[in-house]
Computed example of a mutant assay.
Amino acid sequence: MPTHAQLDERARALHRLAAARVRAEPALFERVRANLARWQRDAAPQVQPYVSEWQALADQGLPACLAMAEEDSPHADALRQASPFAGVLSNAERLAFLKDWRARQGDAAR
């Protein structure tokens, strides 16, 4: 079973992949904004502080939002628990990443 630190590392790596995808296709940033708009309406109260912080980053622009998505810090790890980057990667991209991640974790355990 992966440790919490490994899960944070996986989320950070997945967000680096999503950030690269958004850099290659900046129109995907609209999906991030759409997620935030929906979550401002529908998310549970305990998630709203994260939504508000992501919204403030998105309002600063793409570079600020992507920087936080990729940042290696406990605060960024916490924010990624409520990530508006859902849907930026296709299911195939996400599943390929997860398969590769599991394989690499298995190699690391040997």
Rank of each mutant, 00 (worst) to 15 (best):
A103D: 15
D72N: 13
A19W: 04
S73L: 07
P84R: 08
P84T: 03
A18Q: 07
A108M: 13
L95W: 13
L36I: 08
E9F: 09
G87L: 01
R10N: 13
D100R: 15
Q105S: 15
Q105W: 13
L57V: 02
Q81G: 15
A37I: 01
R12T: 07
A20W: 00
Y50R: 05
E71L: 03
W39Q: 11
Q40S: 04
F85H: 01
V47N: 09
V32D: 02
A92E: 12
R94T: 13
L17P: 04
E53G: 01
D100V: 08
D42P: 02
G61P: 03
A37T: 00
A37D: 00
D77K: 01
A19V: 02
L62S: 02
K99R: 12
V22C: 03
Q48H: 06
A69T: 07
A24D: 08
A11R: 14
A37F: 01
Q6M: 04
G106M: 14
L98E: 14
A92G: 11
A5L: 09
R23N: 01
E71A: 06
P26E: 05
R110N: 14
Q60L: 11
A109P: 08
E9A: 12
M68R: 08
E30Q: 00
Q40A: 09
R102L: 07
L36A: 06
Q105E: 15
E25R: 02
A27Q: 03
A103F: 10
